Amino acid sequence: MTHFLQQTMTERPYLLSSHMSGINGIPENYVRSIEKHFNIIWFDDYLKNKEELASKIQLVFMWSFRPIIDEKILQSLHQLKAIVNAGVGVDHLDLPLISSFGVKVANTPHVVDEATADMGMALMLASARNVLEAHQFLTSPGMKCLPYNWLGVEVTGATLGVIGMGRIGYKVAQRAKGFDMKILYHNRNRRTKEEEGLVGACYCAKIDDLLQESDFVMLVVNLNPQTCKLIGERELCLMKPTATLINISRGAVVDQDALVKVLQKRLIRAAALDVTDPEPLPRDHSLLQLPNVIITPHTGGSTAKTRCKIMEKMLENAIAAVNGLPMPDEVLPK
């Protein structure tokens, strides 16, 4: 990469991105890294001066799903070569449409795997041991005694069902093995016997078998037409009444109306969600009112180390694209 970096301000290619800092903006220290290689056009500035700026833009950096890429913006960016996405999932991008404009897409696989698997385990443990409720109880003004008979559920020795045994799902299994959990998994393609043996995982050809036997069900699938609302009322009702649903994939993988119904009736014990549909949920959404739900704001890959790696991979793909080289992490339309 280094031999492309000796560029002056005027020589540097232009890229479009959302905004700097704030809740969903690119952190300032990452901006400095980008500006070593590219001139940044922020989306608000682009909207104010489209005619002058559109012809300069060769790249779009998608950070926190922004800016939204639609046909109108693709038509205006005549020099656009690539869209580089922060993170693995590209379900928010219309890949066939983008490809029809001759534009390539890259993501940042692998770098989010460890942090996302950690998040899955964190949600499982927090839900099982009532961590949030315990904190709220202990810090409440009226607290006078410790809740000795307020009981959680065991994680060690329990059965974990992993739906989606790709890179992240397998890392979840590695962590669960350390808790002596019995691990079941359902996946489009079965892992090798050696891979199964290393984590002690048992393959379930039928998702129903996994749902019926698991104490914790963790969703780690990509969102696509086949997995949209993969878990609906029928699937939830197959789960044990003592079981917990954990979702670290995409919100739309679960039928949220069905999940609310099942949780309200206590047909399953709890749900722990790092993703919802939409994000964030409307403030009056029923999931936000239920005591047996933990929701975090899609923070699976939100660690300082992981975000730094994401930016490094984005830059690697972007530099390749503007120099006419294959992007290491190009995502092809299906």
Rank of each mutant, 00 (worst) to 15 (best):
T2Y: 00
Q6M: 06
Q6V: 01
Q6W: 01
Q7H: 01
M9S: 11
P13Y: 09
Y14C: 12
M20R: 15
S21V: 04
G25Q: 08
E28M: 05
N29G: 01
V31A: 10
S33T: 10
D44I: 04
D45H: 13
K48V: 01
S55V: 12
Q58D: 09
F61I: 09
M62Y: 00
I68R: 09
I73V: 14
Q75M: 08
Q79N: 15
N85T: 12
G87M: 05
D91R: 07
D91T: 08
L93H: 07
S99V: 05
V103W: 05
P109E: 10
V111T: 09
V112K: 03
V112S: 06
A115T: 11
A117V: 04
G120S: 11
M121K: 02
V131W: 04
L138H: 06
L138W: 03
T139G: 00
T139K: 15
P141N: 07
K144E: 13
P147D: 12
W150Q: 03
L151R: 05
G157L: 14
G157I: 13
A158P: 01
A158H: 08
T159R: 14
L160A: 13
V162L: 07
G164F: 03
G166M: 11
Q174S: 02
A176P: 01
D180G: 07
K182R: 15
L184S: 02
H186M: 04
H186T: 06
H186C: 08
T192Y: 06
T192M: 08
L198N: 09
G200R: 12
G200Q: 12
C202Q: 13
Y203K: 06
C204Q: 11
K206M: 10
K206G: 00
D208L: 00
D209M: 04
L211E: 04
L211D: 05
Q212M: 14
F216M: 10
M218E: 10
V221Y: 01
N222V: 03
P225D: 11
C228W: 05
K229Y: 13
R234E: 14
M239W: 12
K240H: 11
T242G: 09
A243M: 06
T244S: 14
T244H: 01
L245M: 12
L245S: 07
I246Y: 02
I246T: 05
I248V: 15
V260W: 04
V262Y: 03
V262T: 14
Q264H: 02
R266L: 06
L267S: 10
L267G: 00
L267W: 08
A272P: 04
L273Q: 04
D274Q: 09
V275C: 07
P278S: 01
E279H: 09
E279N: 10
H285L: 12
H285W: 10
S286M: 12
Q289E: 14
P291I: 01
V293M: 05
I294R: 03
I295Q: 04
T296P: 09
H298K: 08
T299F: 03
G300D: 05
T303A: 10
T303I: 11
C308L: 14
K309H: 12
K309C: 07
K309V: 00
I310W: 01
E312C: 00
M314D: 02
L315E: 03
L315S: 06
N317E: 10
N317D: 15
A320S: 13
L325C: 07
P326S: 09
P328F: 03
L332C: 09
L332D: 02
L332N: 10
P333F: 08
